[in-house]
Amino acid sequence: MIKFESVSKSYDGNMVLNDLSFHVERGELAFLTGPSGAGKTTILKLIYHALAPEAGNIYINGQNTCFIKQSDIPWLRRSIGIVFQDFRLLLTKTVFENVALALRIRGLDEREIKARVMETLKMVGLRHKSDNFPQALSGGEQQRVVIARAIVSEPMLILADEPTGNLDPETAAGIMNSFKEINARGATILIATHNRDLYHNSGRKVFRIASGTAAGIVVRQEES
């Protein structure tokens, strides 16, 4: 589903990813971890093509996105649900509208949008906040709105960047259970996190990005 082949990426001449290779199989739930500034968010941006690599190839669902046509980029992104580390909620729209946006962009009709958004909000425990504006929500609530927006369209791939960063352990565990459920229904999920509790003893694949001089080397670990 996701395959990086010798990918390199630098910002203004500062190498962040150097000759990085890894792959996530279809239907997997995998973790991406490493210290702050290691390049986790950068990897996710490369996947949804907000950034392009300087060298190497990236395959998403078998397609090499380094040669993607401009007009195909929206379709690539519609196959992905993204939990942004910086949320990216529209502050002028209600919780309902923020989540509905993912479906409006995909052209669903109003009745189905309403049903699916409410169902998803219930899943993340925010049904009663559907008419609130994001600024009236706590950080953890905002994060759950972002998660709802990422999963509401039932994408085949979900990228979650620090999805439990603002959540207490209990709510975090609840969100993790939702991800596991969605994964069990067939979606591929890649979660970038520092939160060891999420992947420890999970039995899932963990990609660790080493920091400092070894930047770019990925260590594959199996944990049980």
């Binding site: 949804y48 907000a50 929206p74 379709w75 690539l76 992104r77 519609r78 992905i80 993204i82 942004f84 990216r88 529209l90 002028t92 946006l101 993912a102 962009i105 995909r106 927006r149």
Partner: peptide
């Protein structure tokens, strides 16, 4: 900013 978000969500 909002437009950037729309595009990242797959808007044409």
């Amino acid at each position: 900013d909002e437009i950037e978000t729309l595009k990242l969500l797959g808007a044409t």
